[in-house]
Design a protein around this nucleic acid. Sequence first.
DNA 1: GCCCCTATTTGTATCGTTCCACAAGTTGTT
DNA 2: AACAACTTGTGGAACGATACAAATAGGGGC
Lengths: 342, 342
Amino acid sequence: MLEQSRRRVTIIDIARHTGVSKSTVSLVLKGSPAVRSETRKAIHAAMAELGYVYNRSAANLRTARTDFVGMVINDLMNPVFAELAVGLEDAFFQAGFVPLLANTNENVARQARLIHSIQEQGVAGMVISPVAGHGVADMLDAARFRAPVVTTMRRLEGSNLPYVGQDNFVGARLAVEYLLQLGHRRIAFLGGLENFTTRRERIEGYQTALRGAGIAPDPALIIEGPPTRAGGAASLAAALDRDAPPTAAMAYNDMVAIGAIGLLRERGLEAGRDVSIVGFDDIAEAEFNAPPLTTIACNTRGLGGTAADLLKKIIEGGAAPTQSIIGPARLVIRKSCGAPPR
Amino acid sequence: MLEQSRRRVTIIDIARHTGVSKSTVSLVLKGSPAVRSETRKAIHAAMAELGYVYNRSAANLRTARTDFVGMVINDLMNPVFAELAVGLEDAFFQAGFVPLLANTNENVARQARLIHSIQEQGVAGMVISPVAGHGVADMLDAARFRAPVVTTMRRLEGSNLPYVGQDNFVGARLAVEYLLQLGHRRIAFLGGLENFTTRRERIEGYQTALRGAGIAPDPALIIEGPPTRAGGAASLAAALDRDAPPTAAMAYNDMVAIGAIGLLRERGLEAGRDVSIVGFDDIAEAEFNAPPLTTIACNTRGLGGTAADLLKKIIEGGAAPTQSIIGPARLVIRKSCGAPPR
DNA sequence: GCCCCTATTTGTATCGTTCCACAAGTTGTT
DNA sequence: AACAACTTGTGGAACGATACAAATAGGGGC
């Protein structure tokens, strides 16, 4: 509004205007009790009058400590990671941190550059949901990084960085046990790429459940594919083309499941009657799908909060920088599964 | 890795190690051509060896210029805004800016605090998708802000800040004209809250199309409701309870449309046969909905890029700080609309 | 041999805070 | 009256970079 001089207002201006030293103004800024409340009031008034805005860069330079934290997310367009980001952002904000967001878009090179750029800002730490299929080697910067790093959603192979994730193994086992209980015997595993650590964990849960029911897992029923709706449709199509097609499938995630259900519809089949499908993640969309999707809920948003809190604890020296936290998985039964057709 | 001394490596260390002055190191950092390439190489080597990381805070302090930009988003869990965020983030990254992300979660108080906190970081500018139903008054900080601000997705009432948005009026008109052309005469407008500027614009498009066909808009067919899937279901339920229920509806956005279609299904009705529904936004989910959703596409991600580019231009002094850009809207015909039942 | 010119390199002030040792004033104790 | 103990406030040196004027070294030209 007031255009006045372009020069930025500093604590020195405030000091001069109030007739105190800049040290005193600094004390007020930090809420020190060692300053008379009259003085404090006068200083606050001056700040309001002159339109002072605190220069955190300068403070950071002096204290060698910042309130920045990095948030490196592999795919913000995927509702699961958007949810994660929201959980993370919210917790950071509550804790007084300022998050720097980076979306790597599943691109290693971009991830490396972004991590580098975030480091330069002198962040106090960062949370990374790493690009799939790559290990520490591709993230060297972060590994030699002085500030603490917490990985989430996916493990970073070859590292012992702290990790916050959902229980993929148990979640998948739960889902498949449910399908078995409904009477299915030929159950496919749909989608996800070979090199996802999460997928490996989910497949183990899937196979464990199968074996627990005395069924030998059939590798032909494990279909690799992109973790997208389109990928889900393609994966299920591939599975149905097998000699002995499955009567049910556990999808790598909800998007795959929703894509698979779309394919069923296209072929005039119905999920839950002709073929049963379970998802994983319980994204908002799952509940409104047709039919509503039976899936594994992991409270992704809460996981983001947990990861942020863990990072905070490590920054403050209150937690070992190698700790891991695995959040629980829960089966949410809706309408996409039923007994196998006879 | 190397634990050594905790002190941070600075250009002075590099200078000492290479046997040059810190000025030279600084020149190398900035890629100045005025330094012999041997020297440059030696300095780069030293930086690698000592594990130097650039301290942007210090540089910013000196140059009074930063590469930070703020991204204030009202609801990251909504796919449209997630898409916007991705477009924004990507463009900023390409342009060498570091985005600070804030999710206001449709909460004015939070928005005010976040904007304040972002300002303190000395951002070069910011893009805001404002919380609905509030004007500049609630965002005073941003208004008196020295750095440029670009608003997007929603207009900020009472301000003449530059705005980048989609063509709500034309989009809505297109959608309704399509319904009219299919033969519908009683068309509802579903969902969205009274105080959304976008909703007002869309309603105007809706009414204009109606009047163009010689139909007087019936206020009883304009139903207010939360812009969510659940809100969409409720809004359509309300519309169908009217004395003369509509045979088609234009939804405030895709989430509302998807919720409405869900309600139809629950009641044993089918979208596109019994009632036609058009959405707005063309989120990824729309294509995989059952039935696939006919909707208005606005290239939200591209809009984010445009907003980022505009901010960049303003920062660099290449654009007037009051310019507005309205992106085109396009009808995407899928399966959720058909002729009215007879 | 002297001077000018170009190519490199350097010294020093500066950005806006915080930190810390210390000063000045007031009150309480003996 | 002397001294301790608070309370409140101050001066100036950091922090790690950049900017800019000025220094230095070689190379030609005369």
